[in-house]
Design a protein around this nucleic acid. Sequence first.
DNA 1: TTGACTCAACATCCTTTGCTACAA
DNA 2: TTGTAGGTTTCCATGTTGAGTCA
Length: 451
Amino acid sequence: MTVRLSFENGTVRVDTDDLPVDSLADLPGVEVDPRSGTARAPAYRYAFLRAVLGERGADVEDTVRSTALDRSLSTDYDLRDYQRDALDAWHDAGDRGVLELPTGSGKTVIAVAAIADLSVPTLVVVPTIDLLEQWRAELEAEFDVSIGQFGGGEQIQEGITVSTYDSAYLRADEVGGDFGLVVFDEVHHLGGEGYQDIARLLAAPARLGLTATFERPDGAHEAITKLVGPKVYDVAVDDLAGEHLAPYDIKRVEVELTPAERERYDEAQGTFVDYLRTSGLSLRSGSDYQKLVMRSGNDPRAREALLAKQRARDIMLNADEKVRELADILARHREDRVIVFTAHTNLVYRLSERFLIPAITNETGAKERREILDRFRSGEYSRVVTANVLDEGVDVPDANVAVVLSGSGSEREFTQRLGRILRPKADGGRALLYEVVSSETAEENIASRRR
DNA sequence: TTGACTCAACATCCTTTGCTACAA
DNA sequence: TTGTAGGTTTCCATGTTGAGTCA
């Protein structure tokens, strides 16, 4: 029999003249719409569909992927051993899957090699404009071809196109048939409810996901596994520390709440715990917490409990003693390059004023941000204080000391922050991360969760 | 082109043990 | 016997981003 495949609005349309349309429903992922009499599958099933039709010996007329590159690509990169192993593992898995490698280990290089190996139209999807520009520059330099861009005010498609997740989400149903390979940088973002659609609407058979932390606390990496492929290779920070990344130490510093803070903390935390006890609600996972949040919508006591929890968090994460501890640390590291991380922007501004350190938050405009980072890079500034802005997706000049004054329980956040000081040092020196924790508060739990 | 604004989406948010129903 | 998940349909607050709009 002859089967025609074509791309239509994020789906692969399946037509045949030889058989009734209902008989196509036994193909993988194919559903028949009785009203229009058409059969279609989600675009991401395209490769599988081709494989099954091949097995059945069907004659396939395929117009799904209408474009090709006008020449094959090559790269001059010399892959390191682990990069080569990662690339091989991905090829062995049928050009599908996720590579988990630490920040600074050269994930881009592997992707460039993969793009060259396949030499098919490629879409690279990244979370921020900053990364979009970095990738674009890198690809232009390496392949000497013009690179398309979706996002940041441009909508230009080329053989290789770099896109933000947001723009990819907006364009995928339209251009989803044009690519043979899709690279998802920071692929953990793809677990987001909406972003998963990007991968569903693309027909690209080859899929590469890159991340430093694949697993998500909400379990959405399972969905990513379905859409991109399983994790096929990983290497830990500790495997590379010493040779390709700087060796490092983590120093945990405990500080006490002041008596006044302690009183307010115990009161607020007590309100929260009391509510849990009397309401019969048990918190064992993030979803239990979500239930509490929902309940707070129409239960004033639940709402009060949550607000009290919020107050308790504020007190322990922004404790006065942390500021004093930071003064000590900064005095000890006068000659070093230091990045200070917090969980709240208020504290960022407080520290910025107190220690005269340039601050970067979400309120810092792009121009000012670039200026600060440039000066940090040149050595004019030796310190920067920030909340979460510099965690990911920004090219941050290297430092050798990080101070995590406060943060969340997210393993990802911690890994990213640590990654900021791991670029190998010219003198072979060690990097140092301070983790400052308020003792005898829930922050001890938070701190143990992230490691 | 720039800047200020709004909006939608995403991420984190977790006590200290005990109950129940159900699946493996 | 042992292990594991748990109410259904939106959301207390804070931080961050990209897209879109308008002057």
